[in-house]
Amino acid sequence: MTSTRNKVTAIIPTYNEEVNIGQAIESVLWADEIIVVDSFSKDRTVEIAESYDNVNVIQHEYVNSATQKNWIIPQAKHEWVFILDADEVVTSELEQEILNTLRNPNKTAYWIKRRTVFMGEEVKYGSWRSDKVVRLFLRDKCRYQDKKVHSEIETEGEIGILNNHLRHYTWKGINEFIVKVNWYSTWKAYDKIENGKPTGFFVTTVIKPFWRFIYEYLVRFGFLNGKVGFHIAILSAYDVYSRGLKIQLIKNGEAIAKDRI
C-alpha cells in the first residue's frame, strides 16, 4: 500500500529572470503550491510567472537573499518547503526522489546537490562541478543564516542528503555575469570588514586572486573543462580581486553602493 506523501510548497525568489523563470516553474509543477517572490523585477519576470494559473506571485522589497527567503517561508501553506533559484531546474529524477522522500521523511531538512551549466556546457571538473545546498526542509524548524551572501539553512534537527541533482544555469551572458560579480563582491567586502577578517592589500588583491586562479584551473583540474574551465578560473580570480579591491577602498573611506542592479 502506497503511503500518502506530505504536501510541499515550492518557493522561487526572482529578480530580472525572464530568461529562466519559465523553465524553473515548469520543473516544479508537481508541487502542491508554487510561490514566486519577486524583488520588483524590471523585465517580464512577473508577467511570465503570472501566466501560470497555479503560481502565486508576491512582490517584496529586497534586502538580501536570506531576509527575502526568511520573509516568505512562514507564508507557505504547507509544512514542507522546497526552495528553487530561478536559474535552476529540477530534473525528473530529482522530482521523483523528492516526492518519494516526502512520503516518509526522517530528517528536518535535506541537502541537494547541483550540477552547473556554464556557457552552454556542463562543468565536469573544478570546484564549480558540483556543490550542495539545503533546499527541502520543514517550514517551522528551519531558517536561513543572518548573512548577506551565501547564507545557508540553520536547523536544530538532522539534515539528510538526496542523491539526485539540480541543474544550475548560472550563465546569462558576460554583462549579466559581471553585474552579478560586482554586486556580490561588494556585499562580501563589507562582510569581511564587519567580521574582522584579514584585509591586507597584498593578500586581498594579489595573493588571493592569484591563488584562486591556480586552485580553480590546476588544483581542481579545471583545465580539463577546456576553454570553459579557463574562463571560470579567470572570472573566479576576478571575483576575488574585485572583493579585495573594494575592501581597500572601503577601508580608505570610500562608500560603495550596495544597491541591487
Rank of each mutant, 00 (worst) to 15 (best):
T2D: 10
T4G: 08
T9D: 10
T9A: 08
A10H: 10
T14R: 09
I21Y: 03
G22L: 11
A24M: 09
E26D: 15
I35E: 13
I35G: 10
D43L: 13
T45V: 05
A49H: 12
E50M: 12
N54G: 05
I58H: 04
Q59W: 04
Q59E: 15
H60A: 11
E61R: 15
N64S: 02
S65K: 03
P74Q: 11
P74I: 12
H78I: 14
V81F: 07
E88Q: 15
V90E: 03
T91G: 10
E93Q: 13
I98A: 11
N100V: 13
N104F: 15
P105N: 06
P105A: 08
T116I: 05
T116F: 04
V123Q: 00
V123C: 03
K124S: 12
K124R: 13
Y125H: 07
G126I: 00
S127D: 08
R129N: 11
R129C: 12
S130L: 09
D131Y: 11
K132F: 08
R135Y: 10
R135Q: 13
L138E: 10
C142M: 01
Q145E: 13
D146K: 13
K147C: 02
S151W: 05
E152K: 06
I153R: 02
G157N: 02
G160C: 12
I161E: 15
L162C: 05
N163M: 09
N164L: 05
L166W: 11
H168E: 00
H168L: 01
Y169F: 15
K172S: 12
E176Y: 08
F177W: 13
F177K: 10
V179M: 02
V181N: 11
W183G: 00
T186A: 00
W187S: 06
Y190E: 01
D191A: 11
K197C: 13
F201E: 06
T204M: 06
F213D: 03
V219H: 02
G222F: 00
L224K: 15
K227R: 13
V228F: 03
G229T: 01
I232T: 05
A237Q: 13
Y241P: 01
S242E: 04
K246Q: 12
N252E: 10
E254N: 01
I261N: 05
